[in-house]
Amino acid sequence: MSWLTDRNGSRRLLESFRNGDREAFTGIYREHHPSVFRFALHMTADPVKAGEVAQDVFVWLIHHAGDFDPARGELGAFLTGVTRKMLQRRRSDEQRWVPFDDALLDGRQRAQGPEPDTSDADRLRAAIIALPERYREVVVLCDLEGKSYDEAAVALDCAVGTVRSRLHRARSLLTRKLQPDLPQPDLQSCEV
């Protein structure tokens, strides 16, 4: 029954937030900001960018609080979906205008890859960033943020089976990436 109480509490909090209760908004922010920030951080590997995206998400929530339908899922999953859209929009904006120096640097880094004497965590971070986005999202949500398949499916707006298959494929890619002895996969050319 505790989950039911929690769910009702969240709904009451959200209702108060919609009615202009500042404390309710602060409560929602405290509850969901860490997961939003971490999702953005794992997706971008940039704390500054992750902070900006998290800020954008909550500004968006203030303006579009009515868009959330509690019948379709939890607020956390909804906010993850909003974060995902924000990241996609930001990336498309960045791809439109890339400074020449950054483009050169990015290409050089990509060609070199991580340093050989880095830790497993650094290699894993580099490998996650190099994953195609659809694989990166499920790895971040299920393996790094500990979401269930159902929650990830709601956040990613896809079927649970799709989440499972993408996660399986992503894990096998990451495992091979962490074992330098094996032939390395070309992560960008992976297809579902």
Binding site: F25, T26, R38, A121
Partner: peptide
């Protein structure tokens, strides 16, 4: 290890 690093980098959750 990555989870722990991300938790450490998470800023305080105050708007």
């Amino acid at each position: 290890q990555l989870q722990a690093e991300a938790r450490a980098m998470t800023p305080p959750s105050e708007p």
